[in-house]
Amino acid sequence: PPQTPIRAAMTSIQQLRGELPSSGDQPSTNLATYFKNCTVDPSQAVQKRLEMLGQLFSQKFGEAVGPRCVAYGRQRFALGVRLYYKVMEEMLNSEEKRLSVQNFSKLLNDSTFHTSLLACALEVVMATYEESSFKNGRYSNGGSDHAGVDVCFPWILNVFSLAAFDFYKVIESFIKAEPTLSKDIIKHLETCENLIMERIAWRTGSPLFELLKQEQESGAAEQVEAPAS
């Protein structure tokens, strides 16, 4: 049958669902082993964080899209959690091969890492759905009440109070760890990257400034070429 925009969008969502294990709402045996190998087991903290962020996400999704859509928000969050666990496991497999270590206690107890990784997984889910929403015209009512736009990037950063610079850190590793991402989704993540690099990371309060200050202090002896006018 001919490929219609609706059919293409439905295929993207089905592909995303199909690539995630149906039992993936919990860490796999392999991922649970990484958790257990840690000096401090992060399992409980990971679970608690997901519960807290899940409630926050559903609430904010309902506020943005409408109270009748809270259930859709929960569905998207559940899909995001499955992608989060899958990508985390693949990242740790890669890091184990690269560094020849199995104890990732520091990384796996870093709340910012988990929040950034989950935000990236949710952005992939949201972009897949939003793409379909625009294509099938559900939100395209031509007015200013364009609900689909409200949950697009950088919406997720505000929901999780996440610094754009921290979100930026996970994007490349995420794409490397999840080879089944469609070209459209990769392009979307690259657009997020560019937005962060060009604008969002330079807003007041960004951790980037503190990092630059530290870098300047530690490398004060190095000769830095003066910038061109």
Partner: peptide, 21 residues
């Protein structure tokens, strides 16, 4: 077609980006 440009070096990974050795 669209190809992502990977900027990280082979010796860099998510551990370094979150300051973990």
């Amino acid at each position: 077609s669209h190809d992502y440009h990977f900027g990280l070096e082979d010796h860099e990974g998510i551990s370094e980006l979150f300051d973990c050795d």
